[in-house]
Design a protein around this nucleic acid. Sequence first.
DNA 1: GTCTATACAGCGATAGAC
DNA 2: GTCTATCGCTGTATAGAC
Lengths: 209, 209
Amino acid sequence: MAPRRMRGEDAGTASRILDVAEQLVQVRGFNGFSYADIAAELHITKAALHYHFASKADLGEALISRYASRFASALAGIDASGATSRARLAAYADLYVQVLRDRRMCLCGMLAAEYQTLPQPMRDAVVSFFDRNESWLEVVLGQGREDGSLRFAGSVRDTARMVVSGLEGAMLIARPYGDIARFEAAAANLLLGLEPAADEALASPGPAA
Amino acid sequence: MAPRRMRGEDAGTASRILDVAEQLVQVRGFNGFSYADIAAELHITKAALHYHFASKADLGEALISRYASRFASALAGIDASGATSRARLAAYADLYVQVLRDRRMCLCGMLAAEYQTLPQPMRDAVVSFFDRNESWLEVVLGQGREDGSLRFAGSVRDTARMVVSGLEGAMLIARPYGDIARFEAAAANLLLGLEPAADEALASPGPAA
DNA sequence: GTCTATACAGCGATAGAC
DNA sequence: GTCTATCGCTGTATAGAC
């Protein structure tokens, strides 16, 4: 049975296992760490890990599930901010920056690379994560095009896919260089392509200083 | 000593090892395959593999080296075609499509994900690969902006980085969906953002039908 | 250049005591 | 819920025969 904890108390062992495993996957990949790595970090034994997560596949599923929940909360937070569509896009890109600051790849971006080696439940969860990102972006992009704060030639769906791809790819490439600025430049340039040309934006809150 | 072969003969064992290993890395990742996998595919023993590539790190270096050479040849081929800047960009994106058709990730894109687990020589080679891609794109983008066939707001360097990132990311995401069309849509949309608006391109070879 | 055989560390996972 | 101990397997790598 899971440990009973009241809100506000310290995280239980299962939660701490997830914290360490999450970091390991985001930095080294799912095939790049072992139970021994987690055990060493937490000063417990591998057997104790198996009590909380019977198999590595189970651990992987729990990892994606928690990550997706957090991401959904972050998106809800952006929505609740009442910001403009363009500002929401920028806030979305900033979520990636925060991950990159710990020298991590997006969890699901990392798992996407290793996709062919993953057990089916993890595969499904990874795809579901990207689907939800795409859906959220479709709403933002649709509204932005509607209110004139965004402008793009392709369909809303394709543009949403381009944004997810572009940001995930920018993370992927920025990490070997250890250079967040590289991500920020690629991301800014990507979003720049979705803004109206300078002479079109006079009627709406524009990018000009 | 390396086997002596004349041009036109069948590839030697070392070359066939590289072929199989390359496919395995691009599909499963460097940490997702073993010497046993290659040995089984080629019907030789693991010991024979170690004769040609003493360590897995050596194999990895040879892999990137050959891949980078091929890529350089492909870029030289595009340059030799005499195509317009915009057509060169499209041809560049098509290189990615060809890789994706075998259900593979870009070799160096895959290794970028696993970067933190790689030996230093492999790390250096991966970074060098991206540097060369970026340099090539800078020339194409610079010329395109010059002759009016391309238009983008950011710097040539940042835009080159955005293109590499965008295409690598589009590959990364398209693979879990097993859908090349998803890559093509994201790539087309990305390049669309680099084309002059329809009413600006009348003086130069435009995208209109 | 490929083989058999093997060394040795690491892996995920389980049994059973406490 | 965590431990010790261990299992069976796979990993990279090597020695030495052919």
